[in-house]
Amino acid sequence: MPIYPYEKNGKEHWYYAFEVKDADGKRKTIKKRGFDGKTKARKAEAEAKVTWERGSYIDPSKVTLGEYITKWLENKRDISLETRSTNEGHLRNHILPIIGSIQLQKVSVSDIEKLIESLYDKGLADGTVRKVYNLVNTCFKVATKKELLIKNPFDLLEKGDKPKKGKAKFDYWTTDEVKHFFKVLDHRQRIMFVLAIRCGMRRSEICGLRWKDINFSNKSLSIIQTLRPQQGLKIGTKSSASSRSIALSETVIIELQRHRKLILEERLACDEYQDNDLVVCQPNGLPVSLGNFDKFWKRIIKNTGMRYIKFHELRHTCASLLLSAGVHPKVVKELLGHSSISITIDTYTHLMPNMQLDAVNTLDKMLN
């Protein structure tokens, strides 16, 4: 059997190679490397021969990047439905139109540079550019590891040509703006905005919150369930740090009790009420529609006459107001459910200029 050993990084690997004739009678060699065992190589060779004889064999050297990365993404199992949907969007909108038709083995450094340039030309945020870049780079790393490529073109990029990790930019409302917002806001889902601004909760956490997750006696709530665009209601959170307990102020307790009264009235009035125990729900008890959420938020902005910020930036508003008031970053980190305090500090460091001054002044008082 045409199975051959070779050495790579001090370890023995195997490859198969066999000759065939194409439709024109020309001889060609079918070859594949990267097997860590002789048995695996022999089994793969047998499958390749059967596939060739059936006429469905695809020469690895002829596979385009678009064909390979699409198949690779389809077979990827270690990502959530939301991440998969996002990646498919990046693939469809940004990757395939620029370099998708190039043969995988012929993608060059200049092609990668062209992709990066096209992303910036579209005016995409630095974070989005890096996500697209990392998606393609990871795909090429896998292809290189499987020895479909001799060299990963990403490794040849100059450091200055790689997308830089830009600092996240966000907007938030001031104290006066928040006061005005709640003064003019008149909506059955008012509690949604109360939880976002006063508790720093994410949209998925607010829309998945159940009444049984709230302890009115202890004035706290627990983040246990979330509502996701692709997965719907799901037990579990974004990360282990996101699963947390949040203390509730007297104002939030009053708002929750007022909202609970409304929900009980709607339940009695609706003959086909579907009780999911949700705090934020439609009048019939079903979860809110995340597909129309942006339009819903823009209507709220229009009806209240507020300066536009993204709904997620209500969470930033909560953090910004707390830090500006001198609350310790560790407390804010725990409230928001960040995985580490460095994320909190890196994101909001520009809001804490007085903290350092307060620290040195305190030291002055101690030593003088």
Rank of each mutant, 00 (worst) to 15 (best):
K295V: 07
M306G: 06
N292I: 00
H316G: 00
T317D: 02
I309V: 11
L322Y: 04
I300Y: 04
F296L: 04
C318M: 10
F296Q: 01
I300A: 02
I300P: 07
F296V: 02
A319Q: 07
I300F: 04
F293N: 00
S324D: 11
L321V: 10
L314D: 01
D294S: 13
F293R: 05
K295I: 07
F311S: 09
I301A: 05
F296T: 03
K310D: 05
M306T: 12
F293T: 00
R307K: 15
H316S: 06
F311V: 08
F311M: 09
N292F: 03
H316Q: 10
C318S: 14
G305C: 07
E313W: 04
W297E: 00
L314K: 00
F293Q: 03
S320E: 02
I309C: 08
L322F: 08
K298V: 02
C318R: 06
L321F: 00
Y308H: 15
L323V: 10
E313F: 01
K302I: 09
A319L: 13
E313M: 08
F311D: 05
I301K: 12
D294R: 15
K310A: 11
Y308K: 14
Y308D: 07
I300D: 01
N303M: 12
I301H: 06
H312S: 12
Y308G: 06
L323A: 03
N292K: 11
R307A: 10
G305V: 06
T317A: 09
M306P: 06
N303Y: 12
R315K: 15
K302S: 12
D294P: 01
L322G: 04
K295A: 13
L323Y: 00
D294Q: 13
L314S: 00
K310R: 15
Y308R: 15
E313P: 05
N292G: 14
N303W: 11
L321D: 00
G305Y: 06
K302D: 13
Y308P: 15
R299S: 15
K302M: 09
L314G: 04
R315G: 03
F311Y: 15
S324Y: 01
W297D: 00
E313N: 15
G305H: 10
C318L: 08
T304K: 12
I301D: 02
K310E: 10
T317K: 10
S320T: 07
Y308Q: 14
C318E: 04
L314F: 07
L314N: 03
S320D: 01
L314Q: 04
E313K: 08
S320V: 07
L314E: 01
M306N: 07
